[in-house]
Simulated scan of single mutants.
Amino acid sequence: MTRTVGQLTVTALQDAEGPFPSPRQECFPDATEAQWSAADAHDPAARGAGGEWWLRYRSYAIRVGDSGPVTLVDAGIGPAGSLAADWAPVPGHLPDELAAAGIQAADVSAIVLTHLHNDHMGWAVPGDSPFTRARVIVQQADVDVYRGNRDFTGQYDRLIEPLMAQGRLQVLDGDAPLGPGVRLVATPGHTPGHQTVLVEDAGESLLVAGDLLVHAIQLLHPELAYVSEADPEQARASRAKALAQAAARGTVLAVSHLGTAFHDPT
């Protein structure tokens, strides 16, 4: 599934899908039954047959023209032995998805990780990654978190430190241009260094949202907190600001985990 934004093409790539291990009501404890009903009507594919929260694990490929270099936003859950293997439906199939979209691993010049949760970085890990020449772009605030928790999370030892040793880690602090028509926007809260990717060209725009929102219930009710947000108040503010700007500008949202990849502005 693709969307065009002027001369840029954004392709949704599904690494995997499966049920979330916790009941969705526990993940959004403040949500009402009416809000769940509205969310299910808006995004019915995000609810499994038994009422469980059914997630897609997506990455997005951004390309200028038909043959330009590719920026990959997020890197999925990864192979069978990835850091997400204890809870997510590994192995993922991102390399096959890219090939089916006509994108070779060597075409990927940059990987933007919206944040360092292990279901977004699996195929960027050296040793598991086919993207051996791509720079990997993260925010300093997330690097700091995992440097301080390296004894039990694995992100620093398996991802950050090896990429630093290879000279492929690019660490930013806040908003930054990435290339023609592509800009990184800091949206902290889900993690301290969460970032989104804004694609703009020819009067059109698309926001690759990462985990700015993780379920349609937050799309309809941005005030609702998700239990895995590091700073719920900051996440709420980032989400409300981004969604308000998207609505005002007619920006398409490209989302990680909802049943449908692209959501048109309403």
Rank of each mutant, 00 (worst) to 15 (best):
E97L: 14
G127D: 07
Q195M: 15
V136W: 04
G92K: 14
A88I: 01
R133K: 12
H215K: 10
A141F: 04
S129V: 05
A110P: 00
D201R: 13
Q166H: 07
T132N: 00
P162G: 04
A99P: 05
T153F: 14
L163A: 10
D201C: 10
V112Q: 02
R168D: 07
I217A: 09
A209Y: 03
G148M: 11
L212N: 10
Y156N: 00
G179A: 06
N118I: 02
V138N: 03
D144F: 09
L116W: 01
D119E: 05
H194G: 09
Q155W: 10
V208S: 01
D144L: 11
G92C: 08
V214H: 12
G181D: 06
Q155Y: 08
P126W: 03
D175I: 08
A106T: 10
T191L: 02
W87V: 01
L113N: 00
I160G: 04
E204P: 10
R183S: 12
V214K: 09
V182I: 14
R183F: 06
F152R: 13
L178N: 03
V125M: 08
A209L: 09
L98T: 06
R147G: 06
D175G: 11
R147V: 05
L94K: 10
T114Y: 03
A105G: 10
L116R: 02
V171M: 04
R147C: 05
T187A: 11
D201S: 10
P177G: 01
D211I: 03
R150H: 14
P192N: 14
A141P: 02
N118E: 02
T187D: 11
E161C: 12
T187Y: 08
G148W: 11
A176I: 13
D151I: 15
A165D: 15
H120K: 08
L159C: 07
I137Q: 05
V171I: 13
G189Q: 09
A176T: 13
I217F: 07
R183M: 15
F131M: 06
T153S: 14
L113H: 00
V112L: 03
L213H: 02
V197L: 02
A134V: 09
A202R: 12
D107K: 13
T114W: 03
Q218N: 02
P162T: 04
I111F: 14
E97W: 06
N149V: 12
A88Y: 00
V145E: 06
E161L: 15
G127M: 14
P192L: 11
D173C: 09
S109C: 13
D211E: 08
H120N: 09
Y156S: 00
G174V: 06
A209R: 03
H190S: 15
I160N: 06
Q155A: 11
Y156D: 00
Q140L: 05
G174W: 07
L172V: 09
A209T: 15
A124D: 05
P130S: 14
I217K: 13
A216T: 15
D86I: 10
V90G: 04
Q166W: 04
A100W: 06
N118L: 00
V143C: 13
E204C: 11
I217P: 05
A202F: 07
V125L: 15
G102I: 12
V171G: 01
V199H: 04
